[in-house]
Amino acid sequence: MIKTISLRTAVWLFSFGILVLLLLIPMDTVFEEGRGGMFMGAAYDYQVQNHVSNIQSFFTYIYETGGLGTDEAGRPIMDQVTSVFLRSMLIFMPAILIGFFVGIAKGIFDFNTRKTKAKFIGQPVTIGFLSVPDIAIIVFIQLTVLFLQGYGLVEIDLFGHDKIDNILMNILYLSIYPVMFIANITFKTLENEQGLDYIRTARSKGTGELKILYRHMLKNGLPKILAYSNTMVLYTLSNLFIVEVFTDYKGAAYYMYTTLGSSTTFYVGALVSPNIIAQIGYIFLFTVVILVFNIVSGIARSAISPLGEER
């Protein structure tokens, strides 16, 4: 267990280091301007010594300020980073929790109804939701809300970040994938456990179906479900990015996008981003979240069986 934790922490440090290196790449770009400031092109040449000096100044900065320092207006960057990050977590964490609880419930439902007529709203629906791009579902939900709003039936604010509506809607959007993902894993796990000897034994001894399902199958399957939580968290974080940018929810992913956003817009001569420090802060917090889930899933994985998954 200690080995799992230390190994994963080491890899985390390494990948965080790589990300910081990427963010600190020098931005010495020479813009070629045409008449009236027209953008003609840009020349970029990478120089190692500039990169090194960037890294050095970053570390001296961190060391000297003993935190993340302050921005131009004198407000501490650390406070901004944490408050914005908490805003993101306010929609991310509930989505993950809903994913686990509702997902397992849905998986059990799928499993129970797999041979009945109700199976049409069971497993196929789960698979269907998993294969449709989330944004299609989100747009569908929004269009429905707007349609209902047209008739004055509901009153929901779709874009922004300061209303309870925004938070609830974003939790809904974000939790679609985790719920379906966990439901699918639960279903598959239960299906695998299904034919095993100990289940047959339990059944022949007259244990009730419900008790078998919860006491035996689910209990044995839980580590397997947890083991996949890593993939789910990673995908949901990717989704957080999309959802925040799309719905104007000003959380950490939104700010990361707008400050990094140079991939879609930029100003001539103003490529050096003063927000680099904040970006590194966000990256740090996000990767820590991943690390926590990574450790949980790693421990779960080693708990399944020391020999791996073959049985």
């Binding site: 890899v11 390494f14 990427l22 963010l23 995908y235 990717s238 990361m256 996008y257 991943i290 690390l291």
Partner: peptide, 14 residues
């Protein structure tokens, strides 16, 4: 394992 710490969209944007 390095990429398991980098959500796809994040790393593409960076």
């Amino acid at each position: 394992s390095i990429f398991s710490f980098m959500p796809t969209i994040f790393i593409i944007c960076i």
